[in-house]
Design a protein around this nucleic acid. Structure first.
Lengths: 240, 240
DNA sequence: TGAATAGTGTCTGTTAGACATTATATG
DNA sequence: CATATAATGTCTAACAGACACTATTCA
């Protein structure tokens, strides 16, 4: 952590710009969608980018706090599932100079977003686009988006991460649909339920099941408190 | 990526310090060891820390290049396996101010380090310590070390990552010993070889097997070129 | 030939995938 | 009672774990 050329002046040379960018994801009509914001100033004025902003060293405790602040302020989203993704850096990714972007990804339920009088699209120019239809973005935001989508789809293979895309209560059939949309494949009902039970992250909700049609109503589930932020990793293979 | 308070001056407020820290790991006598360097200036002058340094915006293309430079310059290590770990940040982790550390982890073969006339301990005050014996480190370096060790051990469960701790050629028995040391458990020989074959990352070396004792000599293997940086992830579960 | 390690064969309990059956609601 | 979706039962092929056996070298 030293500057070898200036032993007595550790901050003698130009420091990079430090920003936080967030890939905010939700599921709408079986499509994984990312939130984009219209830039209010240059560079890339008027273009659509991932929500992001400078780290405020005067008020942010750390980068996670900056990400939380940016999500609330610029996207109107509170307390979603939020996890650090990867840090992107370099001389050429931002025309303003050598820059660092600490990238996060966030998952929200689309239903939860649409609270009365607080629609995200009211306060700010925010739009949702299907991630597979996004061909290019300013800066290196397409790389960041791609990394986040790959991460979420990869974790869907072996973890309960997608529960954070669900509303407060949901049925197992709905949860299965979400997994199927993310993985773009069909899953076997019995196998899916076995796996979800093993992961031990959801529990029956106390509410009564409400029926929607001429058929047996489905049990409502909710995310277990303790497991809300945990990610289960298969600890099989190679070990015995 | 804007400063909302200073629309025309995007870099108006204090930027964080940006550093790179590296958890350099190797295996010595069945113990996972990390490289520590003695700090040449304050803060924490004289204490042992992870190798690290400021990003040089004038010469480093990106953070990975900075990590490579620091490894070569300060630890005398060239072209190891190197991967971004996680970024640590905040107001209090460094007494010099709000700081960002883009952390990497690197794997090297201990045998490869000891080339004649280039011992790492010659040029710099570098020492290797068993990771499980390291109780405290300056800054938040113990957290960084812990994250790296957890990551390596976790990846050992399902990937071929540990091949990067091996010398140029090695036997499957030696590779199994490395896995066993990392996982701190014994593995079944048959199952281990089945799995390594599935991962498809090593191939028989052209060299003749050399025998070491009154027993059948072992086939020497080497890492496949194409797979040198790839990490295999089990794509089973939940999918059919 | 015995000792030591390398390498392969193979049995078996477990389980994931596939599909069948039962349960419960409405009209 | 027909129908639609929920929930569970169960068969089987595949595989991971366990262990036995063969191979090859040197003393």
């Amino acid at each position: 952590m030293d500057d070898p050329r200036n032993p007595t002046a550790p901050r003698a040379f130009e420091q990079p710009i430090v920003t936080v960018d967030i890939v905010l994801l939700t599921l709408m009509e079986d499509e994984l969608c990312a939130a984009l914001l219209q830039r209010a100033r240059p560079p890339h004025l008027g273009e659509w980018t991932l929500p992001g902003g400078f780290v405020h060293t005067d008020t942010d405790e750390d980068a996670l706090a900056a990400a939380t602040r940016i999500l609330e302020t610029k996207a109107g989203v509170e307390s979603p599932y939020l996890e650090q993704l990867q840090t992107f850096s370099g001389r050429h990714r931002d025309s303003r100079g050598w820059s660092v972007s600490i990238a996060y990804y966030a998952l929200v339920s689309h239903q939860t977003l649409q609270r009365p009088g607080e629609s995200a699209t009211d306060a700010s120019p925010l739009k949702w686009r299907a991630v597979d239809s996004i061909r290019s973005l300013p800066f290196d935001h397409r790389d960041i988006l791609r990394a986040a989508v790959d991460r979420v789809r990869s974790k869907t293979l072996y973890s309960s991460l997608p529960v954070h895309l669900m509303p407060l209560t949901f049925t197992l059939s709905q949860l299965q649909s979400v997994y199927e949309a993310l993985l773009r494949t069909e899953l076997d009902k019995r196998g899916f339920r076995r796996r979800i039970e093993e992961l031990d992250v959801v529990e029956p909700a106390p509410q009564q099941p409400t029926t929607r049609g001429a058929h047996r109503p489905a049990q409502l589930y909710r995310v277990k408190r303790k497991a809300a932020n945990g990610v289960a990793i298969a600890d099989r293979n190679l070990t015995r």
